[in-house]
Amino acid sequence: MTPVELSRTVLHAVRRAVDEGELSVAVPERVVVAPPRPGGCGDYATNVALQLARPAGQPAQRVAEILRPHLLRTGGIADVVVTGPGFLNISLRSAAPAALVQEIVRCGLRYGHADSLAGQLVRLHAPHEVRALVHLDVLARILRSQGADVRTGCAAPPGFEWGAVLGVRVDVVGGGNAPGGVVVRPVPAPADPLPLGRDAARWALLHPAPHDRPRIGDDHLVQREGNPLFRVRYAHARTRALLRNAADLGFTPEPGPVAGAQPLLQALADHPRVLAAAAAHRAPDRLARHLVAVADAVPPLLPAVLPLGEEKPSAAHRARLALADAAGTVLAGGLSLLGIDAPDHL
C-alpha cells in the first residue's frame, strides 16, 4: 500500500465512522500520512484525529480510538497503535510477492513516488559549498517525487564545473534564505570531489548522514564489494544481464510466488516508505543506504533465475526473473533520484 493509497484508506475510515454515527464532522478532502516521528511506531502515522477533535467535540485520543477499528478492518493494514495526544500509527502488511512485483513493474522508475506533499511549496536554500549544493539538488528531486513544489536557491552561482561535472542546478541565485525556507547545510566536504567524476562524487557526498564528515577518496572508484556504490550498480547490471540472457533462452518475466526471497521482497516493499522518510526528514542518505540494502539482498536470488543445463524454463524461473527485474527497477529509480547513472553493463 502506497502513502497515497493509505491516505485514501484513512479518509474512508473517517467516512465510515461518520456514516455510522460515531463522529459528527465534515469529512476532510485529504489526509496526510508520513513516517512516524520520535515516539511513534509502525510504517506511517497521521494526525487526523487531532484535526477532527475540535469539530467532533471529543478528545483526540477518543477520535483515534473510534477510527482504529475501522482501519484494522482494512486489508493491507496489520496494526494500528494510538500514541501521544492522538496520533494513529499504522503498520502495513507485506504485499504478496506477485502483487508487489506487478506494482513495481506498473510504476517503473516511479515506484514509490506519491502525492502526499501535493500542494506544498518547499523552499530550499544552500550555502555556496559543493556538498550542500548536491544535497540541495537531491532533496529537491526526492521532495518532488512525493508531490511537493520545490524552489531551490543559493547565495552564489554553483560554478561551471559543479554544474557540468556534478549536474547541480538551482532556481534562484543570490539573496538570503526565503522566509519559511529550509537551509540545507550538511558537514562540508573535506576535499574537492570533482576528480571522482559525477557518480562517485555524488555518492561520496550523499551516502553519509548530513551530520557526518564525508570521505573523498579513490575508494569510491574501485570495482569491489567493499565499495557500496559498486555493489548497488553491479546488482542493477546483473538484473539487466539476466533479462538479456533469459530473452536469449526464449522466456520472459512473469510475477509469481518466490521461495526464500523474503529479505529482498521486504526491501522492495519498504521503498515507498523510505522515499517518504527521506523527504520528511530531508535526509538523502536514507535513500542511499536503502539502495545498498536492496543490492545486498539481490545476490542470493541470482543463481536460481536461469535454468541450468537441459532444464526448461518453468513458472518458478519466470517468477524469479520478474523479481530480479523489479529489484533492478528499484535500484535504477533510486539512483536516478540521487542523480547517479545506473548502467546496464558494468
Rank of each mutant, 00 (worst) to 15 (best):
L121W: 10
A283E: 09
R273C: 00
L92E: 02
D341G: 15
R141L: 01
R68K: 13
R110V: 03
E65M: 12
P263T: 03
P300F: 12
P272C: 13
A319P: 01
C154L: 04
T329R: 04
R213W: 14
A297P: 04
G167M: 07
V292E: 14
H281Y: 12
Y44H: 11
E20L: 12
H211G: 01
P214C: 04
P228V: 08
A276K: 04
A276S: 13
L242S: 08
A164V: 04
I340G: 12
V173M: 02
D79W: 06
T239K: 09
A246K: 03
R54I: 00
P195H: 13
T252K: 02
V27T: 11
V165N: 10
L88A: 08
L100F: 00
S145K: 05
P307R: 14
V172D: 02
D285R: 14
P253K: 05
D248V: 07
C107D: 14
I77R: 15
R141W: 07
D218F: 13
G21E: 07
R273Y: 11
A114D: 14
E103N: 12
L109A: 15
L139Q: 11
G75L: 05
T9P: 05
V81F: 01
A126S: 11
E103Y: 00
P195T: 07
L302V: 15
D149M: 04
R185G: 12
I216W: 13
H271I: 09
P263R: 10
P38A: 06
P307T: 09
L72P: 10
P300N: 08
A126L: 09
G159R: 09
L265R: 11
R62F: 00
R106I: 01
E129S: 11
S336C: 07
V150A: 07
A209S: 08
I142H: 02
R131M: 10
R141S: 05
V32M: 10
G75A: 11
E22T: 02
D325W: 14
Q51A: 15
L287I: 03
S314H: 03
T46L: 10
G108E: 04
A279V: 06
D212M: 12
R123M: 05
L133K: 12
A278L: 11
D19Y: 07
L268T: 08
V63Y: 00
G334V: 06
L338V: 02
R16T: 07
A148F: 02
D192E: 13
Q262C: 09
G334I: 06
D192H: 03
L11I: 14
A278H: 14
L206K: 02
G217C: 11
R238W: 15
V187L: 15
T2G: 00
A261T: 06
A140L: 02
A132I: 05
W162L: 15
A34P: 00
A49W: 01
N89Q: 08
V63L: 06
A342T: 03
F230S: 07
R282N: 07
P188E: 11
A114C: 12
L72S: 05
R16W: 11
T152M: 09
G226I: 03
L206A: 06
P3N: 09
D137I: 02
L205G: 00
S145R: 03
L92D: 04
Q58M: 15
V330Y: 08
